[in-house]
Simulated scan of single mutants.
Amino acid sequence: MVAYSMCYFGGGKDEEEELEMYRQIHFPALTELRKTTKLPSAAFLRSEGKCPLAPEEAVLMLAAIGFKHSTNVYIAGAEIYGGRHRMAAISRLYPALVSKETLLSSSELEPFRNFSSQQLAALDFIACAAADAFAMTDPGSQFSSLVQGYRMYYGGGDLPTIRPNKRRLASILLKNATMEWNEFETRARKLIQQTKQVHERPVARSIFRHPRCLDCMCRTEN
């Protein structure tokens, strides 16, 4: 996800070379496209909210909107880019940090490893679908869309999904070094408050992410 996003995460030339090598192996079509097409810069993508949140950005958002030190946090997905070093900020503030790899033993995980990665993703889906709150840290992957749609359809408004306006959040995060914490907290909370309502599906939006529409909701007939 990090490589495909074409975003920059502060790792300098080493990061740029590492991600480019990964793209050449796993996303050759994207590599070829870059040779013939001028793609948006990493800075532009970030300003437009197209980049996944780095762990340190995610922890700022969670802390600002009121999640306490004792909160149990489940990390979904594969290995975090940057490894333990990149996870230091969030693990310090939220020590009750777990994943499927820490909750389950190797023998419990083994049956799922014999299949495609979707089997492991199903475990993440179960955890995220049942969580008290689900925070989206990517611009909108298929997995996040499915989780959000499930929670919206079955939650009855009681299974909140934290899906901030990424463009506005990016503008706040870019200024956080020169912003007092109280101001950052106020702006982050206002941002989340504006995007947490449950609406019917907007026109031309994903049916998986926004299942609330006349064609999708269950009806009974007498």
Rank of each mutant, 00 (worst) to 15 (best):
S106G: 08
E16M: 12
I65P: 15
L97N: 07
S141I: 02
M87A: 10
N165M: 05
M6I: 09
E101K: 08
H85R: 09
T102C: 04
L191Y: 02
A64V: 04
C128E: 09
K50V: 01
A43C: 05
T36N: 04
L104V: 00
T36L: 01
C51Q: 03
I75L: 13
N165L: 01
A78E: 15
F208P: 13
L97F: 12
R86M: 07
T71I: 00
P95K: 01
R151S: 12
P95I: 02
I162Q: 00
S105H: 05
M61L: 09
K175T: 06
I25F: 11
E108F: 04
L93Q: 08
G49D: 10
S70T: 15
S107P: 13
E200N: 05
A54S: 12
L97Q: 01
L146G: 08
Q197W: 06
F112W: 06
S5E: 13
N114H: 02
M6L: 12
S141K: 02
R46S: 03
I192F: 02
Q148Y: 03
Q197R: 13
A29Y: 11
T220Y: 12
K190L: 10
Y74G: 03
A78C: 15
A129F: 09
M21W: 04
R167K: 15
D132K: 06
V198L: 04
I65V: 08
F134H: 01
M1F: 12
E56M: 04
M6Q: 15
Y22S: 07
H199D: 08
Y74R: 05
V2S: 13
S70A: 06
I192A: 01
S91E: 10
R167T: 15
V98F: 04
G10V: 07
H69W: 12
S47I: 05
W181R: 14
A170H: 11
C128G: 11
P52E: 03
N114M: 00
Y154L: 01
R86F: 11
Q148M: 04
R219W: 13
R151L: 08
A133V: 09
E79L: 15
H26G: 06
Y154R: 05
L30K: 11
Q193T: 10
I162A: 00
Q197P: 07
K175C: 05
A121M: 07
A29H: 09
Q119T: 03
H85P: 14
G77Q: 13
K13E: 15
G66I: 02
K68Q: 11
E200H: 04
F184H: 10
L53P: 12
E110W: 10
A88D: 10
S144E: 01
Y153H: 11
A130L: 07
E32A: 14
K175R: 09
R34V: 07
E20W: 14
D215Y: 10
L109D: 07
C128A: 06
R92A: 06
